[in-house]
Design a protein around this nucleic acid. Structure first.
Lengths: 229, 229
DNA sequence: ATGGGGATTTAACAATATTTAACATGTAGC
DNA sequence: GCTACATGTTAAATATTGTTAAATCCCCAT
């Protein structure tokens, strides 16, 4: 059995370091990021089995980061670290889909037990964040920003790729407008929303080669990439 | 024989986890949601054989969740978990259509027996929440928001699709106005109710191609999609 | 630094979806 | 029949999304 990969995002240097060392001794493979932004790019560049996120962090808080992580991988297990055991915080956390919640100060043993519990229950369900997607007669290489249709190659722009990836990652489910905007455009504003609409149009144009693939509009909510057959 | 799928909705992390683990050992395939909202979206995205719902939960209580589940699948077996054995609670529960009722604290064995009993009596009746409905000469693809009549394709809007799905799911039965409003419009208010009436009119217009299909008004209660022959 | 050229955003206008309003009709209870 | 209230119907008012093109931004080669 291979080592489980943990992503720790914690802005307190000391605590972060202690966590990392302790968990590595306990046989995990860990990465440490210092804030939400760094955490997201770390998450994007490697694949993990579980994320441990501090809530209060500079640049991007743990809740926001968790939402973005779940956008890419709904099943990714997340454990939050929080200073206070505020009820609202807890509720907000579980709304996002926290798998567990640890209130500081906590003992390393406690955290370890919770990590093991979460991993035990989520074994096998963990969906990797892929970089290649197949739907209908298309193959989409996110890495290379390339959309293949048979032997036709279509080069995509960065924004097109980002958006198509989110749609693929949520195939046959509704991709929330606001979540996608915050993820790709970093901000849900009027103009960004219009920009997104323009990109949806571009993607629809690319995808119209296959009738079985469609991007549906869910009015007031978002978009859904649907694949028949 | 394949594993039965159970949906557990319980906000107490400990109890939820214990239930999940115990029932999995007993050979069930289980999912655990932490509150009513999460429970509903879980229910919507997978198909289950039985739901075990706690009553007192944040965001959306078990009764409300049960009503919404029954809206999508009247036959879905439901077992309620409740802290107190309040008479009103029990009555309210059975009114909704509880199949059983377990008062905390309870033993795992007791719950297991009840689950098995409910499953035994409901075997085979479990109606899947489909995404394609056929009635009269129509075929309705909820996923694609598409209503087919022979080779005529009618594209539906999101709201039309949501409403038609509820009607289909309750075909030849009365769809409760208030329940539908809370489900689709998230809120039963005067204006939303009028909006719903407008959409009923739209659907009637679409459905008038087939005389054998009608949306009846059940005054003061709701609407009923009836299919003759 | 400068200009070309693709990528992205902004703008303007069109088309749809949804809600609100106004008025008509129907139903139940008295 | 009369009243109160629920529903039917249609159209106007809003809000959201679609579409296209111009304006801007950004990167890179010169």
């Amino acid at each position: 059995m291979t080592k489980k990969k943990l992503l720790i995002v914690e802005d307190d240097e000391n605590l972060g370091q202690i966590l990392k060392e302790y968990l590595e001794i306990k046989g995990f493979d860990t990465s440490l990021a210092r804030d939400g932004e760094e955490g997201l790019s770390e998450f994007n560049s490697n694949s993990y089995d579980l994320c441990i996120l501090d809530i209060m962090m500079p640049r991007k808080d743990g809740f926001t980061l968790a939402r973005e992580i779940k956008l890419l991988n709904k099943e990714m297990p997340v454990i939050f670290l929080t200073a206070k055991s505020l009820k609202e915080d807890t509720i907000e956390g579980f709304k996002i889909g926290a798998d567990d919640y640890v209130t500081k100060p906590f003992s390393m043993e406690e955290l370890l037990l919770r990590i093991q519990a979460v991993l035990r229950r989520s074994t096998g369900t963990t969906t990797e964040v892929k970089s290649t997607y197949t739907f209908g007669r298309f193959t989409f290489h996110y890495d290379q920003q390339l959309l293949l249709f048979g032997d036709e190659k279509q080069k995509l722009t960065s924004k097109e790729s980002e958006l198509l990836r989110l749609l693929c990652q949520n195939i046959n489910k509704t991709l929330d407008r606001s979540a996608a905007l915050k993820y790709i455009w970093k901000d849900d504003s009027y103009f960004n929303a219009r920009s997104m609409d323009v990109y949806i149009a571009k993607l629809r144009k690319h995808l119209k080669k296959d009738d079985n693939i469609q991007i549906l509009t869910i009015h007031g909510e978002g978009f859904k990439l649907v694949s028949l057959n």
